[in-house]
Structures are given as structure tokens and as C-alpha cells.
Amino acid sequence: MTTPAPAIETRALTKIYGSGNTEVVAMRDVSLAIGKGQVVALLGPSGAGKSTLLTAIGLINPPTFGSISIGGLPVMEGDSALVDVRSFRRRYIGYVFQKANLIPFLTALENVQLALEINDEPPRKARRRAMELLEYLGVGDRMKNLPHMLSGGQQQRVAVARALANSPSIVLADEPTAALDSVRGRQVMELFRKVAHDQGAGVLVVTHDHRALDVFDEILEMEDGALRQHDQNDADPDRRAS
């Protein structure tokens, strides 16, 4: 059996903001590989460079040095893209952020449907798939509502549905459960795991929620821009206390 190409692979990713006196090294020499079907947590204190890593992999914020491959395809080399990032994002990448960032003038259903239509899905098919997803995420009864009529948690679940709509090869989530209660938060994490396992997507989730860590296949930790081995006892105050 040949080892399949990982969903996400980075090599020596470094991001430097500014220059001279104001230079900030937000991320240094980050090399990682996340396999298809794997769901990985990324921990680390504030300012450690987690969002920087995520946005680099997501082709939103190019690294200064290093390379990124997605599904075995090199997509970034230093700060230059090797693919059309817009169409690559559209087809292969799903994002969830701390804030839902739904389009305020579209209903929940339309927000999800839009993601599919942007990816050239015919409207009726897009609509059906969007409904299924919202139903599945437990916001089926609110799909005709505009975002401002939904609670923070409901909005976040719509955002998750939107991220998963096109069955992306990789899902990147930056503190997706910060606005959710622990039950809903865990539900979302479990959904990610399901997406990873069922669709063979690589999922990378930045989280501060240590109670849901058991959902993940692997746990990474960042500090001062660098990746380091996760130490169960060190990083998990809840477990240490018990």
C-alpha cells in the first residue's frame, strides 16, 4: 500500500510582519502534515501564530518563506501562489472563524446556497443540499431567517454548513466554538470529525476548548510562532486539576 499524499503539508513556513524595528516573526519554520480523514487540533497561547498558520494554509495570507501542498499539489512557494487561489479556495477549502461572518442580507439558507452557487452548482441542487446541511446542523427551522435574527450559536452552525457545503478537501476552523455553549461546541467538533472521517477531508481546528480535545486524532501546539510537541499535562489545566 502506497502512502497517500497528506491533505495538508507545510514545509518550513515562516511569516514575518513588518521590517526593521517593527519586525514581528509571527510564525517560524512550521512543518506539519495532516492526513486525509484526519482531524487535528491546534492549541497555543494568544499571539502564538495559530491564525497566521491557518490563514497561510487557507491561501488568504501568504507566508514569507516555506511551501504548502494541499492534497499533494504544491500551492504556495514562499509568498507566491502556484495555483489560482480564488478558484482553489472555492473548490477545496472550507473556513470557519470565531465570528460567523454570514452575509447579512442573505437568509441562512441563501448563505449556504451561495457558497454552492459560487462553485457552479445549479441553484435548485444547491438549495436542496443547503437545506439538508442546515437540517443536519439543527438549524433547519431557521433557514428562512436573516443572520441578525439568529443566536450566535445558530449563526455559527450556519457558517459551518457554509464551510462544508462544497465537500472541501480541507477544513480550517479558527476558534469555531468560542460563541457556543459546551454542548453545541462539542457537537460542532464532532461534526468536523465526521466530515474528516466520512469525506476524507483534512481538518485543522484552532481551539481553546480543552474539554473537546478527545474528539481529535492529533493535537498540535504552537508557541512563539513555532510548533512544539503537545504535552497533555502541561496544556490541559482541566485534566491536571482532576
Partner: peptide
């Protein structure tokens, strides 16, 4: 601005 940024992030074409 935010919505347009989101559209771009979702990979919407400029024509949209």
C-alpha cells in the same frame, strides 16, 4: 467591505 471580503474568501469570482 466585510461581505465582499467574505465573498472573495469563499472564492467568488470578480464577476459576482
Amino acid at each position: 467591505t466585510r461581505d465582499i471580503a467574505m465573498l472573495k474568501l469563499m472564492g467568488a469570482r470578480n464577476s459576482v
